[in-house]
Amino acid sequence: MAKSIKIRAKEKGGVTTVKALMTHPMETGGRKDKKTGKTIPAHFIQEVVCKHKGNTVMMAEWSGGVSKNPYISFKFSGAAKGDDLELSWTDNTGKSDSMTSKIK
């Protein structure tokens, strides 16, 4: 699977701001196909985990109510420039992806 995650993490004054974009259809399971009238099966990211040095700094649980190609941003302290930051997601069909980026 092509890389579906973009992360940008920036450290300033001890606080790291993380911004991440994921590519995912985020189907709720409630939408219908216009042509066939059939319900489009649910397909959305259920879990997002962000780790710094093996410690989980943020773990998110989502429903299909998060927009297509989700964007998240959050802040945490205790990281330094150059540290690795790993972000991964798992969706309701069991697919997952992860990406590691350096904090700037």
Binding site: V15, H52, N55, T56, V57, M58, M59, A60, E61, W62, S63, G65, V66, F74, K75, F76, S77, G78, A79
Partner: peptide, 11 residues
């Protein structure tokens, strides 16, 4: 919609 569980260092 979403629940974010924050780690010890997170704001």
């Amino acid at each position: 919609v979403a629940n974010f569980v924050m780690g010890p260092g997170a704001t």
